[in-house]
């Protein structure tokens, strides 16, 4: 049994890293907003989905005009990422301004229900527009990086099987790492990053230090949503087909990743995302083997969430979270 698990390990790690990178960046959006507002923005998965649709729509438009063929794939990708990031960033800011800001002093449950409402609204708006344009809400975008690369892992050790990766794997991973490192630097080393951390800890004190709290919160939504939208583009490029409901389950898993890493902790969200991605792919590849055929690959979600429950039983604040002391 262990041999069979080891055979698939290289492929599991590659697929897990790809999916984990996507979870990690979406998890950042959840954790940033929670850190600053103590709000679980359940519409964030739909921002990711909107990003996937906006990116795919731009690529299809380029292809329709014949520009895609004459344009280097990397240039097209950068262009699409930038435009999508701005669009979804502004969408996130708009949602905060219209749906969340008026409820900032309302009970948390009301804001949570509003977030779920916004989530359904975005799903249906995107579905409506997609059906209007294409007669179908399931979209398949043009393939930017379609090559397959074989990795001869068996030459290292005969225990492992060879692995294959789409060339887009490297793009997804590199772009994801760049986004995560840039965000980490921004939050920890810049004026606005410090303002964000100050507001996250104590809004009133930050305001008395001349920090415009509303501006910082809007900025947080912009960054989180821009990253989420860009990740939607990466997802569409890597997995090809998208629909208006991809954001729901993926958003739930990304939220799980944020909780696993320690909600409110940016590095924790990154780690949690990659961990969930690898665990999910490990389960998909090995559950039938481990359970002697009782559980199929479709039980991979159960495996990931079971790990989450176990972690939270023993470490309720998450892997990187801090135990919060409540003063009474």
């Amino acid at each position: 049994m262990i041999n069979e698990v080891l055979h698939t390990l290289p492929q599991v790690l590659i697929d897990g890293l790809t999916l984990g990178a996507v979870y990690a960046i979406v998890a950042l959006g959840y954790t940033m907003v929670y850190g600053i507002l103590e709000l679980i923005n359940f519409a964030h998965g739909e921002i990711f989905m909107t990003g996937a649709f906006v990116g795919t729509a731009i690529l299809l438009t380029f292809a329709g005009f014949g520009w895609l063929a004459s344009m280097p794939a990397l240039v097209a990708l950068v262009l699409v990422l930038v435009v999508t990031s701005v669009v979804t960033g502004l969408l996130g800011m708009g949602i905060e301004r219209v749906a969340y800001r008026p409820l900032r002093n309302a009970p948390k449950l009301i804001t949570l229900i509003t977030a779920i409402g916004v989530s359904f609204l975005l799903q249906d708006i995107v579905r409506f527009i997609a059906e209007l344009k294409n007669g179908n809400y399931i979209l398949t975008g043009p393939s930017l990086f379609s090559g397959q690369i074989g990795i001869k892992v068996s030459s290292i050790s005969s225990i492992f099987n060879d692995a294959s990766v789409k060339s887009s794997f490297f793009i997804v991973l590199i772009v994801a790492v760049i986004m995560m490192v840039t965000l980490d630097f921004f939050v920890n080393k810049t004026k606005w990053g410090m303002a964000m951390r100050a507001v996250a800890q104590d809004r009133e004190t930050a305001a008395l230090m001349s920090v415009n709290v509303n501006k910082v919160i809007a900025l947080t939504f912009f960054i989180g949503s821009a990253l989420g939208g860009a990740t939607g583009v990466l997802f569409a490029i890597q997995y090809g087909t998208i629909d208006p409901y991809i954001g729901f389950i993926l958003g739930l898993k990304a939220f799980t990743a944020a909780v696993l890493g320690g909600i409110g902790n940016i590095r924790g969200a990154m780690f949690g995302g990659i961990l969930i991605g690898i665990m999910e792919m490990f389960a998909a590849a090995n559950l039938p083997v481990i359970s002697h055929g009782v559980l199929g690959a479709e039980y991979k979600d159960v495996f990931a969430f079971a790990i989450l429950i176990i972690v939270l039983i023993f470490k309720p604040e998450g892997l990187f979270g801090k135990v919060s002391v409540e003063k009474v």
Binding site: T190, R197, Q201, T205, M209
Partner: peptide
Amino acid sequence: FTNMSVIENVMTGAHRNMKTSFLQA
């Protein structure tokens, strides 16, 4: 701000004198 270093706390105090926009940052 207990989640920051001592010097970062003081730099946050200087927020009003910093001209950097979000885009520039």
